[in-house]
Structure formats: structure tokens, C-alpha cells
Design a protein around this nucleic acid. Structure first.
Length: 203
DNA sequence: AGTAGGATAATCT
DNA sequence: GATTATCCTACTG
């Protein structure tokens, strides 16, 4: 996959983009991960689990912008999660980056997540952003620009996943659209996070 | 191994 | 005022 192929892929719908991102590299803060788990989210009126389902707001505005940009949001009072925006400008959708394996800069990743095992460094969406030092300031950056502080790159030569190893199932922690199998992951990868159904907090 | 509860604040109703 | 695309710790078996 060339960088141009990646840019073309991102013009497509999220359920096609998501499996195509598996094996791609995310580079930020001196750390590189190989993506092993992602989730697709569609746009307004198309996907009740999507932040964009009820239309544009200040938070989700980036989802309506051009593809290849980062949509980073804050949740649970302490965690940052990162998406790659897809579909052409004006139509919202995105792919949540749920997990990856560290392929470079593991010392920096360990320093950002003291106490974590190497396997858990980027195993989960908020762990991934923490290991790479991604937070609010990454929201809206163009991941395809060569001078960007956060970059999305095609798989390194020889590391593209075998399509037979790509599995899919329901999304994690989502109450709406329970049955839509838009979570994609690489079979056998230890960095893939565990499936947890959504559990509402009780007072 | 598995589950239950708490942390903690932006965002939306 | 309720909810949340989560993670960590502690407890049970």
C-alpha cells in the first residue's frame, strides 16, 4: 500500500476504511505503533453509536472535515481517544483506533505508562493515546502531511496483514447499535483488547 | 480468571 | 443533571 493508496482508502465509508487501517503505522511522540484493532463509526442519522449521529457540534466538528485528519475526544473525565476521519469533506464518519503493538520507541512508551506490561502499553484506545502522548492538541491535525507531529503511514514493507487474519465483531462499550459488527482486529495479536459489553454506572 | 466499583470532567439534554 | 467509543484496583473463587 502506497501513501496515495492510503489517502484514497480514507475517502471511503468507515466499515471499508477500518479493516484497511489494520497493519498501518501511527507515529507520534517518538513512538510508532502497528494498528491491531479499530472500530468504524458512521455519520449523522446513519449510526446511533456515532458522536456525529445527531449532527454537528463543537466537539465532533472534525468528523465533518476532510479525511485523514485526527478526531481526538476526552471521555470519562480522564481519557483521550483518537479517530481517523474518513469519507469526503462534509460527510461525517471516522475510525476509532483501539489498539496497537509498539514497533519503535518502546522506552518512551514505557515512560508514559509506568507499571504497564509491554503488551498492555497500547492495548485499548485510551492506553494507545497515552503511550504516544496524544491529547487535545492533536485534534484536527492532518495525519497524512509529512510535517505533521502525528502521522499515519501504510504498513512497513512485509508487515501488511494476511486478510484471512482480519476478524470482526460488535463494538466495545457501546450501548446503541449493539449488533453492528464494526470492530475489526487481527487474530492472534496479543495487543488486541478484550471485548466488554456496555455496562451503565449505577448511583 | 473474572467481576465489581471508583475515579473524574467535558459534553449534551 | 445524566451520560460517557475507559482504565485501574481490589476482591472472590
Amino acid at each position: 500500500m502506497s501513501p496515495d493508496d492510503l489517502a484514497r482508502l480514507l475517502e471511503g465509508p468507515p466499515e471499508a476504511v477500518a479493516p484497511g487501517l489494520l497493519g498501518c503505522r501511527l507515529v507520534a511522540g517518538g513512538v510508532t505503533v502497528r494498528l491491531t484493532e479499530v472500530e468504524a463509526y458512521d455519520g449523522t442519522g446513519q449510526d446511533a453509536a456515532s458522536h456525529a449521529h445527531r449532527g454537528r457540534t463543537a466537539r465532533n466538528a472534525v468528523m465533518f472535515g476532510p479525511p485523514g485528519h485526527a478526531y481526538v475526544y476526552f471521555t470519562y473525565g480522564m481519557h483521550w481517544c483518537m479517530n481517523v476521519v474518513c469519507r469526503p469533506e462534509g460527510v461525517a464518519s471516522a475510525v476509532l483506533l483501539r489498539a496497537g503493538s509498539i514497533v519503535d520507541g518502546i522506552e518512551l512508551a514505557r515512560a508514559r505508562r509506568p507499571g504497564s506490561s509491554d503488551r498492555d502499553l497500547a492495548r485499548g484506545p485510551a492506553r494507545l493515546t497515552q503511550a504516544l502522548g496524544i491529547a487535545r492538541e492533536t485534534n484536527g491535525v492532518n495525519l497524512l502531511a509529512p510535517d505533521s507531529p502525528v502521522r499515519l503511514l501504510p504498513p512497513a514493507p512485509g508487515t501488511a496483514p494476511d486478510p484471512a487474519t482480519i476478524l470482526s465483531g460488535p463494538r466495545v462499550g457501546v450501548v446503541a447499535e449493539r449488533d453492528r459488527p464494526w470492530r475489526f482486529w487481527l487474530a492472534g495479536e496479543p495487543s488486541v483488547s478484550a471485548y466488554r459489553p456496555h455496562v451503565p454506572r449505577r448511583p
